[in-house]
């Protein structure tokens, strides 16, 4: 176990349940590096839904709520509402976040809740055996689309931007250095941060979408297809070539929901003290 693992992992939960060469373990490490650099482990609270990627947070020695499929974001909002001093981080998959939990993503972003959503995108439902996800490309053959996927792809970052997220980034497991930097930015960002991580799943994505179960092949695919481009007006061109723009796309300041609630409470209290009610 490397020193970061020694310091932060739950030893009695090891080994990781991830398959050999899975990107999810790389994300555990990158996240822990960011937490270690900031020295903020005691401030964290994590939530996770269901899926391989939902296990990322479970291995860290940090308070975590592991909840129903798709419901990790509302659980995180609950923690933030009752304990605003916590840095709340949700680990979720492309299925968990964009399919069954899609509605929660929209409204947490819209309200600019001070939390970080880490969406691990392996372009498929991995844990359950390789079914089509909203993130799966048109035409792809998966377990549930043997004749090719007819549904258009949902782009998590564009959804987050449109819904009002105040920090949006996308990297891949082939970008650990950039990812660590972005994790640190998100942990200090006051508002809703959405980080999408393109990650290799040699077993299901490899089998169904990329045609090889080799961790090396699947990792190299990310290296070859993820291109740094932070200007949204250039994304269409990159995407038309079958590539994926990565980078830090957006960071702005907007009123944060829980802080606004506290301000409202204060205002109402003051009004009530004067005999009014608002």
């Amino acid at each position: 176990m490397n020193p970061l693992g020694e310091k932060y992992l739950r030893k009695d939960f090891l080994p990781f349940l991830f398959c050999p060469g899975c990107g999810d373990g790389m994300i555990v490490q990158a996240f822990l590096q960011a937490v270690d650099d900031l020295g903020c482990v005691d401030d964290l609270a994590l939530t996770a839904g269901i899926g391989c990627s939902a296990w990322i947070g479970v291995y860290m020695h940090v308070d975590i709520l592991k909840v129903l499929h798709g419901r990790a974001i509302p659980a995180a909002i609950g923690i933030k509402a009752t304990n605003p001093s916590r840095k709340v981080v949700t680990f979720t998959g492309d299925g968990d976040c964009l399919a069954i939990g899609g509605n929660h993503l929209l409204h947490a972003a819209r309200r600019n809740i001070d939390m970080t959503v880490v969406m691990v995108n392996n372009q498929i439902y991995a844990m359950t055996g390789g079914q089509v996800a909203p993130s799966t490309a048109v035409g792809s053959k998966t377990q549930t689309t043997p004749y090719g996927n007819l549904e258009r792809q949902l782009n998590g970052c564009k959804v987050a931007i449109a819904a009002g997220a105040t920090m949006v980034s996308r990297w891949s497991t082939a970008h650990p250095k950039q990812l660590i930097k972005t994790f640190k930015k998100a942990l200090n960002h006051k508002g809703f941060s959405f980080i999408e991580i393109m990650s290799q799943c040699p077993v299901q994505t490899g089998r169904y979408l990329l045609g090889s179960g080799s961790p090396q092949f699947n990792f190299q695919w990310l290296k070859d297809h993820c291109m740094k481009e932070e200007d949204p007006s250039k994304w269409a061109e990159i995407e038309a070539q079958g590539n994926i723009p990565v980078g830090d796309f957006l960071q702005v300041e907007q009123p944060e929901f829980m802080a606004e609630v506290a301000r409202m409470n204060q205002r109402v209290k003051e009004a009530q003290a004067k005999g009014g009610d608002r």
Binding site: M1, N2, P3, L4, G5, L9, P15, F16, F18, P20, G21, C22, G23, D24, G25, M26, V28, Q29, A30, Q33, T173, P176, P215
Partner: peptide, 10 residues
Amino acid sequence: EQHCPDMVLT
């Protein structure tokens, strides 16, 4: 070490 998915390398 940084890329190892099971954090086994030091």
